[in-house]
């Protein structure tokens, strides 16, 4: 069942509580009362169609965004993706690291193995951070500049040159590398960790990793299925305009 505008926001959470942190990224917090999705969005000045697409792609991994997604503003999308990055780096990653640190508290877990896991997880975090920084520092500013240019139609020669030199396709490739380490970590925990006396904390770590993985997949899904087509369209518009204007 998909999320639609007339549902109560509270029922959305009853239906799928994993959506809570997605909803938070729009600046919407708990305490919905009897308000519908539409009312909550209006209250927080969140564009309703945009909200529904994002929530539904997360809710149902087979859901394909409607064609009207090309109308979404790239800046709205980037704000959401940015919030997602913050959530990973400020919340999810430190939380997993904390759990790994707690592994030796009950003395049943070998210190050396804890260090090994922590080390591996830090390597992963390092790669994820590099990937995120690349998007935040290179890709998003490019998209925002492109959108800005198309809105204002102000032609600055320097900007136009910069935009011409880059294309969204340059960044489409590399989602895979970061995923492999997380995949490995799951198998190491599930299959190869020497059995501890009590695996409750390991269970928690594993649970967190699955959640993170689901979230990352959705993040990549939104970039590939919504952001990239929007930017492709803007790039086309941009080329048409800048070609017409021979002064550039």
């Amino acid at each position: 069942m998909l999320i639609h505008k007339d549902m109560k926001m509270a029922d959305v959470i009853h239906l799928n509580h994993h959506l809570l942190h997605v909803i938070n990224r729009f600046g919407i917090q708990l305490g919905f009362g009897e308000k519908s999705v539409k009312q909550v969005c209006e209250l927080h000045q969140v564009p309703l169609p945009f909200f529904l697409e994002i929530v539904n792609t997360f809710h149902d991994s087979t859901y394909f965004p409607v064609e009207s997604m090309l109308q979404f503003k790239a800046s709205e999308l980037i704000e959401y993706l940015h919030q997602t990055h913050q959530y990973y780096l400020d919340f999810r990653i430190p939380e997993i690291e904390n759990y790994i640190r707690r592994l030796t508290n009950d003395n049943s877990f070998d210190e050396e193995i804890k260090v090994l896991l922590l080390d591996f997880f830090r390597q992963y975090t390092h790669e994820l951070t590099i990937h995120i920084n690349k998007e935040e520092q290179r890709v998003y500013p490019y998209v925002l500049a492109l959108e800005h240019y198309l809105q204002d139609n102000k032609l600055e020669k320097e900007l136009v040159e910069q935009l011409k030199a880059y294309s969204i396709h340059e960044y489409e490739e590399d989602h895979d590398d970061v995923e492999s380490k997380l995949f490995d970590l799951k198998n190491i925990l599930i299959k190869y960790i020497p059995q501890p006396k009590d695996s409750r904390i390991l269970n928690l770590i594993l649970h967190e990793i699955f959640e993170l993985e689901k979230d990352l997949n959705n993040h990549a899904h939104i970039e590939d299925l919504i952001l990239v087509p929007i930017v492709e369209k803007m790039e086309q518009d941009f080329l048409t305009i800048s070609n017409q204007d021979k002064t550039l």
Binding site: E112, L116, Q123, K181, F183, D184, L185, I188, Y192, I193
Partner: peptide
């Protein structure tokens, strides 16, 4: 067979299964 793709993942496996001692690792190549 293992479901582990990366070199660092395989290294963790090798240490856990005592195929290598962590002291042997140069810690160089990542």
């Amino acid at each position: 067979k293992l479901g582990i793709k990366t070199v660092s993942g395989l290294t963790v496996y090798a240490i856990l299964n005592k195929l290598v001692e962590s002291g042997e690792l140069k810690g160089g190549r990542k």
